[in-house]
Write a protein that binds this DNA or RNA. Structure first.
Ligand SMILES: [Zn+2]
Ligand SMILES: [Zn+2]
Ligand SMILES: [Zn+2]
Ligand SMILES: [Zn+2]
Lengths: 132, 132
DNA sequence: TTACGCTTTGTTATAATATAACATTTTTAA
DNA sequence: TTAAAAATGTTATATTATAACAAAGCGTAA
């Protein structure tokens, strides 16, 4: 068998649950702290789970923040086309799920004719709450 | 006086020169090594210069690689709208300068009506050389 | 000129993020 | 059952980035 695609190991479930419950992106070491009561003791255990969850599209990494969010988008089974809205003021991050945008980016072709199989887009601004 | 906008300090010039000469993105600590012969000895000196150069739009950070590239785009005086093409195989990174793309993204408005004053987009694929 | 504010620099230490390496246990499939 | 593969546990260390504070350089106004 090549790969179990919908089964998560214990550590992976624990880490995913923490991230899903969070309202804001979580850092790896804050996850580590949270899960120590459940027996996960060392960074590699967390990073391994994170890597796997990212590959499965269950979570995404916010690169500009070195933090992780749960994917809320059911169609996002693999993390190869992601777009986020990030508030510069509060910690709010939401995944943008906009068919026109994703179609535009998935089909984007640069001057040299190069095509891409993956992209990550991060938008920054002030969210509604923070915009006074 | 508020800010000298086009003058670079000594350390800033040294760091910029190294990045401009490089053919691939440079990591902060590899920059530190390179500039030690010129008297820059400690991380904060490099990171300060990097921060300033980013604010001025002279360089950009490739977030997925924690590395820095010189801006080749004259109109890019401030780092608030960036797009990069990143080869998954070699270390090639190039800044995409495509008016249609930047217009599309600069005007993008999400479902909630939120507008953005900054974005960063990273495309991944195989560059021409690596695509056999 | 001097004295003050501001920016840049220098320096040490440490925080925060991430991986290497290897031993052990668990799960899977032949 | 047994051998391979996957997941886990563990220690140590590598990599990336910032805090904190002292000293030097520079513009300017009294
Ligand atoms: Zn998603
Ligand atoms: Zn906000
Ligand atoms: Zn640029
Ligand atoms: Zn390539």
């Amino acid at each position: 068998m090549t790969q179990k695609i919908d089964f998560l190991s214990k550590n992976q479930q624990i880490v995913l649950e923490i991230i899903e419950k969070a309202k804001e992106p979580l850092k790896a070491y804050s996850i580590l702290f949270s899960v120590q009561k459940k027996g996960i003791k060392a960074p590699p255990q967390v990073y391994r789970a994170l890597d796997r969850l990212i590959k499965l599209g269950k979570i995404h990494k916010i690169e500009s923040k070195n933090a992780f969010v749960a994917c809320k988008n059911d169609s996002c089974t693999i993390s190869n086309a992601t777009a986020f809205s990030i508030c510069d003021n509060c910690e709010m991050v939401t995944e943008i799920s906009n068919p026109k945008l994703s179609k535009y980016l998935a089909n984007f072709q640069d001057e040299t004719g190069m095509r891409y199989n993956k992209y990550n887009l991060e938008f920054f601004g002030l969210c509604k709450k923070c915009k006074k």
